[in-house]
Nucleic acid binder design. Sequence first.
DNA 1: TCGCCTTATGTTAGCGCTAACATGGAACAA
DNA 2: TTGTTCCATGTTAGCGCTAACATAAGGCGA
Lengths: 336, 336
Amino acid sequence: MSSDLTEPGTGPSGAAPTLSEVAKRAGVSSITVSRVVRMPDLVAPETRARVERAMRDLGYVPNLVAGALASARTNSVGVLVPTIANSIFADTVQGLSDKLEPLGFSVILAQSRYDAVREDRVLAALLSRRPEAIIMVGSPATEEGSRLLRNARIPIVETWDLPANPIDAVAGFDNYKAGVAVAKHLVAQGRKQLAFIGGDDPRGTRRWFGFRDEALASGLSEPRRLILDRKDSGSVAAHARLPDVDAVFAANDAHAIGFMSGLRKAGLLRDGPASAQPVAVIGLGDLEMGQLISPTLSTISVHGDAIGRTAATLTQERGGERRIDLGFELVLRDSG
Amino acid sequence: MSSDLTEPGTGPSGAAPTLSEVAKRAGVSSITVSRVVRMPDLVAPETRARVERAMRDLGYVPNLVAGALASARTNSVGVLVPTIANSIFADTVQGLSDKLEPLGFSVILAQSRYDAVREDRVLAALLSRRPEAIIMVGSPATEEGSRLLRNARIPIVETWDLPANPIDAVAGFDNYKAGVAVAKHLVAQGRKQLAFIGGDDPRGTRRWFGFRDEALASGLSEPRRLILDRKDSGSVAAHARLPDVDAVFAANDAHAIGFMSGLRKAGLLRDGPASAQPVAVIGLGDLEMGQLISPTLSTISVHGDAIGRTAATLTQERGGERRIDLGFELVLRDSG
DNA sequence: TCGCCTTATGTTAGCGCTAACATGGAACAA
DNA sequence: TTGTTCCATGTTAGCGCTAACATAAGGCGA
């Protein structure tokens, strides 16, 4: 009775109860308690019941920090994204998290904000927590970051791209080909003056190269390229900076929708099909929103969720195919 | 020369180099290396330089797992959200992460997927990593989860709501009042047949109650309530299930935009101002997208980012005001 | 009856680091 | 000279847990 007065969740000193406090209360050694937590089948039913009782009485919560140090397994995965807000990467994080959580892994999330210095810093911070794998969007921006990851000797999964010399594993799609596919389509549609709007991050730039190369190969003049900062607001006004353009490839759906909003204000948007649009617009990402607006948004559909799940799977395997191309799909709707 | 042949990042046994290996190479004790890492000012410049050299040569990456165990500080914060994808919560995660990262804290991210069982499970998993605080959207769904958090004796911040009996700190807004504000506005606009669409999660339900109570208090008949699952697709078809309704409050902007898409197909959407809309639509969240579509979306604007930043601040303080109402704002555009 | 396996539990050592408390010397006032 | 203080560094012990190796007791075939 007296020990029941101890507040649950606090040991004798008011600190969180430990394995050995549970052990003492249950009259067993601490390794037995450890086994009840991790491999209950190895413990005799009555012993197990006694231990479980003691854990409940004390409000015991295992300390994975200590466990990780002792076993050299942290059961955690580091995840690095440029940004998690308003972004297509959130699907990837959700996908990998859904896959990893049932396996007992936690996700340590970090954002680079498209800043190489910050990326190296958070990469080092991530690594110092000894995750069992790292999943990142894209590839390290610096040689230093790359070195850090190589030396970590854990599975590294680069996503949303198909780098030529990956550190380890890859789950993504060919951004260059995506640009090519869009240009091909616009050319086939008879568009003449192409433009590209988007950021100048590595993946966006690869989309641009594919887009430009294909346009040039088709005999068109070099498309214009408008580099926007991360704020969509820029894309609303973008059409004013692109006179005479009759087709635009936006590096992501948010830019595309912003651009269409600008077109609408300028009276250059129709509710009819692609053929009726004075200016064709193609996005990338296939946000759900794209199907809900008018005209519906044509886009390169990419399965962010599948990228995340595949990346998670790749962290658990050592051998096998380490380069998964999830592909993309040109989804044609009414905007272009 | 010979030791330079050791691959960086690997100690004698191929494992990651440790503090004491660095110490030996630099000819100092391990505590000195530890000080160079954590309190460099306490170490003499030449000693420091020698240690830094040794760290670089060996590719030393501090092991925060061991450090955390020794110091009882993990420098991590657990974050629990219903879902991170396509969601207004991503802004909150970004905000708190931006605030916490410079302070040396890592974010351990977990998703409940609006599932109480999963929530309790990930809460326990989070706690076993001994975070120094927990930030969550909403409040624990179960008594068990609540108990777990209380016993953890760390700052707990509940967000996106203003619970009557919070566990510890709160950063949010009054969802009930948001519902009231929307109903008031629609009544003032002369709307008669109101409806609410959204999920049946606690916050959505509170919005509904405010909305309903205010409608009834204004002498209107009880609004209809359509509970949608997490897929927006439901909201597109929602208008068909709400005949004769002339105003709709959607629990979030995604539902609102989906609903508008359905209205458009039914010929019930105008490009003109709110007064011209056969059916008024008000959302919640103020997604950037809402300003880019036509008609522009009227919405309850909530600063998800500020909620995250405020929550992060609350994890660092013990005293002071622990209940921050960030408020909301009814932003009127063309949809209602 | 003996040896050998199986099952249940325990003992020991140590993961890599840091808190707390020495230690030894230089600087300096009385 | 003799404390006293400060600075730079070291020693010791231990955080809470688990891997690896005992140990003990029963079962069982030959």
